[in-house]
Amino acid sequence: MIRKALIAATFAAALSGCVSLGPKVPDTLLSLTATRTAAAGTGTSGTYGTALVVLEPTAEQRLAVTRVPVQIDDANVAYLKKTMWVERPSRLFQRLLAETIRARGNRLVIENDPGASGTQLSGRLLDMGYDARTRMAVVRYDAIRETAGRVETRRFESTVPVTDAEAKYVGPALNEAANAVASQVADWVA
């Protein structure tokens, strides 16, 4: 009995070096951090009819993954080596946008409740990556604001120069560009 257990344990230990239960963790995981945040203890109130509902933007497939896109030319996209987002860029941007608007403190902000009857902010995340041609981090967002059947759209964009195509430069530049776009959108919906 002991011999069988010892053989099974040895086999399991040998096998554990050969089996990978998930993808290799990249060297760097990127996230977005709001430069404007609501202070602890602050809050807002209102009704669903007066709330601003911030929905997750849609995104094309090159942005619907956790890899960081690098635009090589008009037709070719690569991904930044050894770097990934902690989750989909569109979800990260939605949270950043909601927090930036919430930090202004003048209206109730709700995330992902399409049934709420207030103003809805949706849109399409067109770009959130590195452009190798211009050496810029680029965030581009087409916003759609719908209030009581009235629809308005506006495109927002921010670019930030990047020293080199490495995560330690691209990540902070993307965070800066995303915060600039979120601030522009917050001004628009105020």
Score class of each variant (00 low, 15 high):
T66C: 02
T147H: 06
A148S: 14
A40R: 14
R150F: 04
S90C: 11
K24Y: 06
G118W: 07
T100E: 15
S16Y: 05
R95H: 13
L55S: 14
I144R: 14
A13D: 01
R36Q: 15
V109T: 03
R124V: 04
V162S: 07
N76G: 05
V68Y: 07
L63P: 04
P69S: 06
V162W: 09
K4E: 13
E146V: 07
T35F: 15
G41T: 09
G22K: 12
I2W: 02
R67W: 05
A39K: 15
A103M: 04
I101K: 11
K82R: 13
T47Q: 13
T163N: 08
A116D: 14
T100C: 10
S16Q: 03
R3W: 11
V65F: 04
A64C: 09
D164V: 02
A182K: 02
A132P: 02
R3Q: 08
F156T: 15
Y79E: 07
A137I: 14
N106Y: 11
I72E: 02
T153S: 10
N76V: 08
L6K: 00
K81P: 06
S158L: 10
F156P: 09
R36C: 12
E56G: 10
E146G: 05
Q71W: 03
T147R: 08
G105N: 11
L96T: 05
T159D: 00
V68T: 08
V68K: 00
F11E: 04
A173E: 02
T119S: 06
A148K: 10
A64M: 10
A9Y: 07
L63V: 05
V170S: 11
R67T: 11
P23Q: 09
S16E: 07
A39E: 15
S20Q: 14
P26L: 11
K81M: 15
L97S: 04
F93K: 08
Y79L: 14
E56W: 09
D27F: 00
P114Y: 09
A8C: 02
E176A: 12
P161W: 08
M84E: 12
T66V: 11
E146H: 06
Q94E: 14
T66K: 09
A59T: 12
S45Q: 12
L174Q: 05
T83R: 00
W188F: 10
G129I: 06
L15C: 12
M136P: 02
R154L: 00
T42P: 06
R135N: 08
V109H: 02
E111R: 10
G171T: 00
R107Q: 14
R155H: 01
A75T: 15
R95P: 00
D113K: 10
I101V: 13
Y169L: 02
V77I: 15
A8L: 06
Q61P: 06
V151L: 03
L80S: 05
V160L: 08
T28I: 04
Y130H: 07
A165L: 03
V68S: 07
N175I: 01
R107K: 15
